[in-house]
Write a protein that binds this DNA or RNA. Structure first.
Length: 873
RNA sequence: GGGCGCAUAGCUCAGUUGGCUAGAGCGCUGCCCUUACAAGGCAGAUGUCGGGGGUUCGAGUCCCUCUGCGCCCACCA
């Protein structure tokens, strides 16, 4: 018989380091590349943005996924669990600029062995201007160190990632995948470029997509302005928050059924101050009860203007440039000197300054009616920007996403419906977003660091690019940078020369690359064998606020490229809230540093807290929960030590005692429940139920059987076998949550001589998930099937009354009981009879008698203590 | 304006096809150095299950409605 090796004083200290190394050395979490797709569970791990600092949110949601990964591994799946690093895009670019005090200028030549300034300049304008290549070098340098810090943390928290499967979004392989996918979109006629009004961030100097917008409340004021009817019918009053845009007014618009304005449709009015003649038009988007019911259409004040402009086919009178300022020169449509000199007064100004001037002009001309009415209203911002977005006409690349096609929209809505959402109600967010799209996905960005759009354009004799027929690289040559590579049929010296070519200057949106994480991780076109074994993936775990970006864009790319959804399941995690229930975020400055937490509470304890946050639910940061987790882990150590110390039993010895059988029957029910919960990605429920059982197991069952288990007969053997099986099962159930302490205890049961029965697997994390059937087979059929009370339940209740009697009498739990008279119904007393010896042992009861009471009577136990006093329990 | 979620003990939350007297942990109170565990154990108190109405033999659970909070979405002149 194998004797377990139980330490004298079990402890949690040092488990992370010891088992972290052991797992790495043994390849415990290595993906089995020989497994076929049905036997694989593949996870589209969110690649964390490494430009930021670590915070508890990282361990929170990643732990959720890890519990599921561990469960699936124990279910016998080959778990494909890669880690990616998102080190591509604006956040990294911004961080590198500020960290080193540099900025990228593509015109600057590459410098061999460039060394950034020792101290970053205070102002961004004074940052060192360096070439794109030097800039990218610095980005890779900085992200490399960041990534190591993240990996160390994720290893410490016990993520069962296969670290050999890593990828970075800035790598050559990712760039190749990203460019290949784009070129496939282009070849199929999906990707297209167009010169069109688009949302523009004047700080970052780039176009931004609808998905990157957020509304912010800003103060503004309604200004009532007088437009003048050209038929001599008087003035038309419009109400606007942006009077400075009068110069770019191209029409007035009212609702087609608005009787007040119907007579004006088809007529013209002149604008205040500038006297430009504009038509009055009808459109159903004009709201009669907003302002005066008639609005001015400017090119472009907001997205509604764009819709009106497009659908009513109006002129374009754009005056605000990419820098957010009004054009220096008076525009040509201002026909009079007065108009031009009025314009000159705010030429070159940003919108705020221009508005001041315009209000003065309107006031002195008498065309501003009444006082401006102050309001606050939502204004569109780039989510990372500090200034309101402008709408500027630029050439950009787009991929259709249903925003301009009802047919595609319903197709993509149907894709969303194919997914299993966890929790299910999150699917509404997808439907909301897709249903509300009003433009195609803008994928080009005017930045430097990122995946270049892999195209060139032929230049005609005047040096004008032919955007209609881009020059496309061969897929075999990817990745390419059109700024340094040369298209086939051209030579380098033809770059930017008439008759030559020019490279597309833009990069792709970070989501254009992130939307391909399944393809990147699974080796699309890079490793077809791996791809066939892992794609479509099983689950995408992610935060709910990026359903509209990451999740949706991934669905779009997979739909186009593979005609399928990219995964079967979407598992959404909530946010971490600070104790005041605010979302924890860097910008608010209320984040907790996770390394300190791990140091203080231990990885299992922190995981316990994380895993008690239900899927999709925002969870308050709670150090108290970590203390409870730590206590649970210590309890696992101590209870295991105790159970293993009660003595071994032969491998094939049967469980015979009813109370032992009852415990195993209940355990089988727990296994069913935990399994069901995990299959539905409800790890929190699995943990809660397991924990619940475990505490009762310790408080009641262990106490009841300890006396018997110490003896040396068949009844003792029954207890020992039951304890061994229960411990084995509980360790497996806890393993996804508490990987360190369960592995520690598992290791006690395996010595050089061999393993205790049930502990044959080299690691609990490679052991099979418990099988309720096997437990039930041990229990047999006579128990638990009909409605008879459980001997364990009744015995535990009676023991509780005896304890209460001792507690009330203020004596030790060890105090002797002379007599205990149990009054209860017949069937419950029958159950008690099956465990009466254990109850007497545990309660130190000399004489236990029973009185049958009629149906409906509650349990009562009359306890007479041996020497001093008596008490009614 | 549309959609989704939440509201249960002082706090954090369970309560899965409606079913006996509504649960856990923390906190609080009392007791116990009990040879698995005193960074512990045992026991105890605490609730008009947000308000109102309905369906039902029976509602925390289903339906309607109201209130409050949070989030997502919106073409916000």
């Amino acid at each position: 018989m194998v004797h377990p090796r139980v330490p004298e004083k079990p402890s949690l200290e040092g488990l992370e380091a010891r088992w972290g190394e052991a797992w790495e050395a043994a390849g415990t979490y290595r993906f089995d590349r020989t497994a076929e797709r049905p036997d694989v569970f593949s996870i589209d791990t969110p690649p964390p943005t490494v430009s930021g600092s670590l915070h508890v949110g990282h361990i929170f949601s990643y732990t959720h996924t890890d519990t599921v990964a561990r469960y699936q591994r124990m279910r016998g799946k080959a778990v494909f669990y890669p880690m990616g690093w998102d080190d591509n895009g604006l956040p990294t670019e911004r961080r590198v600029e500020n960290f080193y005090g540099v900025r990228c200028d593509p015109a600057v030549p590459y410098v061999e062995g460039y060394v950034p300034p020792a101290k970053a300049a205070k102002k961004r304008q004074d940052f060192d201007a360096i070439s794109r290549r030097n800039f990218v070098d610095l980005c890779e340098e900085l992200t490399g160190t960041d990534e190591q810090v993240f990996e160390d943390l994720f290893r410490l928290i016990g993520l069962s990632v296969d670290w050999s499967l890593g990828y970075t979004t800035v790598s050559q392989r990712t760039q190749r995948t990203s460019q290949r996918a784009f070129l496939r979109n282009l070849a199929r006629g999906e990707a297209y470029s167009a010169e069109a009004p688009s949302l523009w961030d004047t700080t970052f100097q780039t176009a931004v997509a609808q998905a990157e917008l957020e509304d912010r409340e800003r103060p503004a004021a309604y200004h009532d302005l007088a437009f003048h009817r050209t038929d001599g019918g008087g003035d038309v009053v419009i109400s606007t928050t942006r009077p400075e845009l009068v110069v770019s007014c191209v029409a007035l618009v009212a609702h087609p059924e608005d009787e007040r304005y119907q007579p004006l449709f088809g007529s013209t009015v002149t604008t205040p101050v500038f006297g430009v003649e504009v038509p009055v038009r009808a459109h159903k988007l004009a709201e009669p009860d907003k302002g005066t019911g008639i609005a001015m259409i400017c090119t472009f004040g907001d997205l509604t203007d764009v819709i009106w402009w497009r659908e009513l086919q109006l002129d374009t009178r754009a005056v605000v440039g990419k820098d957010g300022r009004f054009a220096r020169e008076a525009p040509e449509w201002l026909g009079t000197d007065a108009a031009r000199s009025a314009y000159d007064q705010f030429a070159g100004k940003a919108s705020g300054g221009a508005q001041q001037v315009m209000v003065e002009l309107l006031t002195s001309s008498g065309e501003l009616l009444g006082e401006p009415k102050k309001i606050t209203h939502p204004v569109k911002f780039y989510e990372k920007g500090d200034k309101p977005l402008e709408i500027v006409t630029t050439r950009q690349w787009y991929i259709p996403n249903g925003g301009r096609s009802e047919e595609l929209k319903s197709t993509l809505l149907a894709r969303g419906a194919e997914l299993s959402w966890h929790p299910d109600y999150m699917r509404h967010r997808y439907d909301n977003w897709v249903g509300g799209l009003n433009g195609d996905w803008l994928i080009s960005r005017q930045r430097f660091f990122g995946v270049p759009i892999p195209l060139w354009y032929a230049l005609d004799a005047d040096g004008e690019p032919d955007h209609g027929h881009p020059l496309v690289p061969d897929e075999a040559d990817l990745p390419i940078d059109p700024q340094s590579h040369v298209p086939a049929g051209y030579t380098a010296d033809q770059r930017d020369r008439p008759g030559g070519f020019t490279g597309d200057p833009d990069i792709m949106d970070t989501w254009a690359t992130s939307s391909l994480t399944p393809q990147i991780a699974c080796g699309w076109e890079e490793d077809p064998d791996l791809f066939a074994r892992t794609f479509p993936m099983d689950v995408r775990p992610q935060a709910h606020e990026i359903i509209r970006t990451w999740l949706f864009s991934t669905v779009v790319r997979s739909h186009y490229e593979h005609g399928t959804v990219p995964w079967a399941n979407a598992a959404l995690s909530g946010w971490i809230l600070d104790p005041d229930r605010k979302k924890m975020s860097k910008s608010v400055g209320n984040v907790v540093v996770p390394t300190d937490l791990l140091e203080q509470h231990g990885a299992d304890a922190v995981r316990y807290w994380a895993a008690s946050g239900r899927p999709g639910t925002d969870t308050a940061f709670d150090a108290g929960q970590m203390k409870i987790g730590r206590r649970l882990a210590i309890k696992v150590l101590n209870a295991s030590k105790f159970a293993l110390g009660l003595g071994e039993a032969p491998a094939d010895a049967p469980v015979t005692e009813p109370i032992d059988l009852a415990m195993l029957a209940e355990l089988a029910g727990l296994v069913d429940e935990a399994t069901r919960a995990f299959d539905a990605f409800d790890y929190a429920r699995a943990l809660q139920r397991t924990e619940d059982f475990f505490w009762r197991f310790c408080d009641d069952y262990l106490e009841l059987v300890k006396g018997r288990a110490y003896r040396d007969d068949d009844a003792a053997t029954s207890a020992r076998v039951a304890l061994r099986v229960a411990l084995d099962t509980l360790l497996r159930l806890f393993a996804p949550f508490l990987p360190y302490v369960t592995e520690e205890v598992w290791s006690w049961c395996r010595t050089d001589e061999g393993a205790l029965p049930g502990f044959e697997a080299p690691s609990v994390h490679r052991a099979a998930w418990p099988a309720a059937d096997e437990l039930r087979a041990m229990v047999g059929e006579e128990l638990g099937a009909d409605g008879t009370p459980s001997p364990l339940m009744v015995a535990a209740e009676v023991l509780g009354r005896i304890r209460k009697a001792k507690s009330d009498a203020k004596v030790s739990m060890r105090a002797e009981v002379a007599t205990a008279v149990v009054t209860d119904t017949g069937d419950r007393l029958a159950a008690l009879a099956l465990a009466v010896d254990d109850v007497r042992d545990a309660g130190k009861v000399a004489e236990l008698t029973t009185t049958v009471a009629p149906e409906g009577t509650e349990l009562s136990v009359a306890v007479t203590l041996a020497e001093v006093s008596a008490a009614e329990g």
